[in-house]
Amino acid sequence: MTLAQDPHLPTSAVAGDETTISTSGNGQAILYLVGPGVASKREISLGEDIHLPSRELQNAGRYVVSVCSDACRSGSFYVAAAEPASLTFLVHPSRVPVGLSDAISGVALPFDPFHNLVRVPMAITFQLTSGKTAMMSRSVQTQDGVAWFRTSSGKDAGVLHVVAAVDELSARRAVQQVASEPCNLRIKGQRTPKAILVETEPVRDCSGNPVPDGTIVTFTAAEADGKSTVDAPIKQGVARAQIIVTKAAVISAASGVVMGNELRLGAQP
């Protein structure tokens, strides 16, 4: 049994493709293959081509081949990623106030069917659509397997659809565009037999977008010797609360850092 020279390895191999190793010499030997996700050994006949099946070469990376008879001879080769089969698409934030510059960003990474990062440069198209309005469409070349974009949020509240596409592949994400801080929080009150019913006018941001339902508006009735408060959520654009006030009181409202107008009420007759 003699091993005349190092095994002849492929100069290029692609993930998921089978390949062939040739050896010289004669007699029996053992072939070892150690690479990402694989460590195998098998008996081979020297001088014959050795077939490496595709299942052993699915992961991109460096593979070491050793052929041992009386001595061992080694070599290595690289397996590159195959054609892209999926896109990992990271988009942030999930919720963004309207009219904010450079507020939305996305990163796309193409992967082949075996989850190898595809590093060959390719053009990825990013498209942002709000309702039926196309907000942005940009083609970005991947560099080291990554393409990214950054853009401003739109003017209108609602769902923003963000799509990354390459050839027939696409990945889709949703960003919720929400109103900014309330603008001009205004309240009005109405006496009922038991209490004062206070409510806001429709709460909107300065661009006219309705502030999201659920946002807390704190109503405060300050009397001479105490106060009453209600944390009321905005529902269908309006926050409502009933406050029991028998004496003269000043009723005000606040949401986050925004203060509303004041209502001054005399004592209940």
Binding site: L90, V107, L109, D144, V146, W148
Partner: peptide
Amino acid sequence: FYAPEGDVIE
């Protein structure tokens, strides 16, 4: 590469 939101680094 370090993503704009810091959620991946290459």
